[in-house]
Simulated scan of single mutants.
Amino acid sequence: MKVKLEKGRKNTTAPDTTSRLRRLVAIALKLGRFKAACKGQMELYLGWLKQYEMLEGEASPIGLILCAEKTREHIELLQLDKGDIRVAEYLPHQ
């Protein structure tokens, strides 16, 4: 859905920001490398969102953990490639 916004003399079309997402997304930014404890913290966030913020008709919330470094072994052992939590590396500013 789009709404018309008036900006000065021009009309601008912008997305309707009153609509809700169909799925909540929790994003955690970690300054260092990924640790197993990050998964537990994200599970807590997702549980809270599911219990207190999720509306009828929405899909279960997902989590994204952004960190400076991750290891494939940790991701596989914690089975993060199969659930609702994903881990991604960001490129630090140099």
Rank of each mutant, 00 (worst) to 15 (best):
M1P: 10
K2V: 14
V3H: 05
K4M: 13
R9S: 14
T13G: 05
A14S: 08
A14T: 06
P15Q: 04
T17F: 11
T17G: 12
R20V: 00
R20E: 04
L21C: 08
R22D: 09
R23S: 13
L24V: 08
L24K: 13
V25Q: 08
A26F: 01
A26H: 06
I27F: 04
A28S: 13
L29G: 08
K30P: 00
L31I: 00
G32C: 09
R33C: 08
F34W: 07
A37N: 10
C38T: 00
C38L: 07
C38H: 04
G40Y: 01
Q41C: 09
W48L: 07
W48D: 11
W48I: 14
L49K: 04
Q51F: 04
Y52D: 06
Y52E: 06
E53P: 04
E53F: 12
M54I: 02
L55H: 09
E56F: 15
G57N: 07
A59H: 06
A59I: 02
S60P: 15
S60T: 08
A68Q: 15
K70P: 00
T71I: 05
T71Y: 06
R72K: 10
R72N: 10
E73M: 08
E76N: 10
E76D: 08
L77C: 10
L77P: 03
Q79A: 12
Q79T: 03
L80P: 09
L80C: 11
D81Q: 02
D81N: 14
D81P: 01
G83V: 04
E89C: 00
E89A: 03
L91V: 07
H93G: 04
H93Y: 10
Q94H: 13
